[in-house]
Design a protein around this nucleic acid. Structure first.
Length: 485
RNA sequence: GGGUCGUUAGCUCAGUCGGUAGAGCACCGGACUUUUAAUCCGUUGGUCGUGCGUUCGAUUCGCACACGACCCA
């Protein structure tokens, strides 16, 4: 009779009235659980237990009901038999409990004829009323908008969705314990900063009322973690929420989490070795295998991960040797001549950005298995230590997987005089309208001028690696509650 | 910002070569003590995204807009 959303809610409110009329509370205080739903299967036959959960499905047979109750992780079956309950109790459940309600049940563990571990309910109590229906039991939520806006509906009915967030928690825990084992300590650095720093990106701008000063949400924790190095901490890390006011894509989200760590007395070569050991451990712990399937493509993390320079990669993938075109004009002409990039989009790029653009278009998408990319142009890396043999590149690497930059790391620039020069180049770019560029960061320079040990630093996007490990096609799906209009 | 596709019952979707619409599930009522997408019987439920245009008549055709997904920048 009733079937619009509003009517469904009315029906459920009237059922709630049944409960109240029977002297039950529709939203009681607590329930004493001796076990979780997940423990039901492992219980010995005949053991009595109490547990609680959301009603996910009901199968009625007149004087018998099988009910599935569950949470994000587990579900289990309970049965209610008319002759084993007070008659009013049985009828009250039948007439008042809807899919989505929470109930607490006490009874005895037994196994049904079909072999399903089941709690035979002796007593039940009502724990919370759901006034709206759960998603379709078979199709789930197809509406992509609702799937994002009401993630709680997916996680309480779809264990594959819930599993992403369980793996997310596990991933952070594994990363933390690995780093702690290697004597890194976790530092909390400011998310609200006076001046953006640590990456080339657009920021979210805000205002600090108490100080009456404009501020920015951090785009990276880098320069503060380096201040900690200056302060005498030799190994530091942070899982930092970062904010970049830029486009959204399958691999980009404006609010994301980045693990960064810094080790004094290491260089980027040390980090390459450390990265391989750490990520192999992490992947094995989370996935249980060093080969994963991502969107039907195998990604192989076993074996030694190859190391390629920008130059080697571009010779291989685009058949162009950047060293044969030392000037920006020559390189640009060759790229346009070969029709590798659109002439308009590269008209104002410097040589480093041009090489980067070329790499992103022609080479990066085809890198599927983990690959260390080295030899980054200096102008893309204003905080990285310059290479001692080649002034045009820095001691930096990226780990590329599935065409995505997963890790970015480099030997840190400790020289405050060189750092100032790099900032000056950046500041000039800001003046000419580059919103990604950095201003001169006097506060950070002041720290460097007090002396920072040689060090190497490392960063990885949590959502990206998680998307790979959970076979999520879109980075959004790794975020439980992504912002929406 | 550009392109493609989409928007029909609470949910998942059909459909109407232009004559105001159907199924399954859910809901509601009934039968049922071994189901697990339970089954069976019977009801109920729709401004067909919004606006304008063409037409005797538009959910259907056209245009614009909104919202969403995907691709590209």
């Amino acid at each position: 009779m009733k079937n619009t959303t509003e009517d469904t809610t009315e029906v459920r409110i009237s059922k709630m009235q049944n409960l109240l009329d029977s002297g039950l509370n529709a939203y009681p205080d607590r329930y004493e659980c001796t076990h979780t739903i997940g423990e039901l299967k492992g219980l010995e036959e005949g053991i009595t237990a109490s547990m609680a959960g959301r009603v996910l499905s009901v199968r009625r047979f007149g004087k018998l009901m099988f009910v599935t109750i569950g949470n994000a992780i587990n579900r289990g079956q309970i049965s209610l038999k008319k002759n084993e309950l007070e008659e009013d109790d049985f009828n009250l459940f039948m007439n008042s409990v809807d899919l989505g309600d929470f109930v607490g049940v006490y009874g005895q563990r037994y196994t049904t004829k079909k072999g399903e571990p089941t709690l035979g309910v002796k007593k039940w109590t009502f724990l919370s009323k759901s006034l709206r229906p759960l998603p379709d039991k078979y199709h789930g939520i197809k509406d992509s908008e609702a799937r994002l806006k009401q993630r709680y509906l997916s996680t309480c009915t779809d264990s594959e969705v819930a599993d992403i967030y369980i793996k997310r928690a596990k991933l952070k825990q594994v990363l933390r314990s690995f780093l702690e084992k290697h004597h890194f300590i976790e530092i909390d650095t400011p998310a609200i900063q006076i001046q953006k720093s640590g990456a080339l990106a657009r920021s979210f701008k805000t205002h600090h009322n108490a100080l009456d000063i404009d501020a920015e949400l951090r785009i990276a924790p880098e320069t503060y973690l380096k201040r900690a190095l200056v302060g005498g901490f030799e190994r530091v890390y942070e899982i930092a929420t970062c904010f970049r006011n830029e486009g959204m894509s399958l691999a980009h989200w404006p609010e994301f989490h980045m693990l960064e760590f810094y080790a004094a007395y290491w260089n980027f070569e040390d980090l390459i070795n450390f990265t391989e050991i750490m990520l192999k451990h992490v992947i094995d712990t989370i996935v249980g295998n060093n080969k994963i399937i991502y969107q039907e493509q195998e990604i192989d993390f076993s074996g030694d991960w190859p190391r390629l320079s920008f130059r080697e990669l571009l010779i291989e993938k685009a058949d162009i040797d950047i060293n044969a075109f030392p000037t920006i004009e020559g390189l640009r002409a060759e790229i346009i001549n070969r029709n590798l990039l659109d002439a308009k989009t590269i008209a104002n790029l410097g040589r480093g950005s041009l090489i980067d653009e070329l790499y992103k278009k022609t080479a990066r998408p085809s890198i599927i298995n983990p690959t260390f990319l080295v030899g980054h142009p200096i102008e893309l890396s204003p905080l990285a230590r310059n290479n001692d043999n080649d002034a045009s590149i820095v001691d930096r690497f990226q780990l590329v997987v599935n065409g995505w930059e997963v890790v970015n790391a480099y030997s840190e620039l400790a020289d405050p005089i060189e750092q100032r020069k790099r900032f000056e180049v950046q500041a000039a770019a800001v003046q000419s309208g580059d919103e990604n560029a950095l201003d001169i960061d006097e506060d950070f320079l002041l720290a460097l001028e007090h002396g920072m040990p040689p060090a190497a630093g490392w960063g990885m996007g949590i959502e990206r690696i998680l998307a790979l490990l959970t076979d999520s096609s879109n980075i959004k799906d790794t975020i439980m509650f992504p912002i929406h209009r």
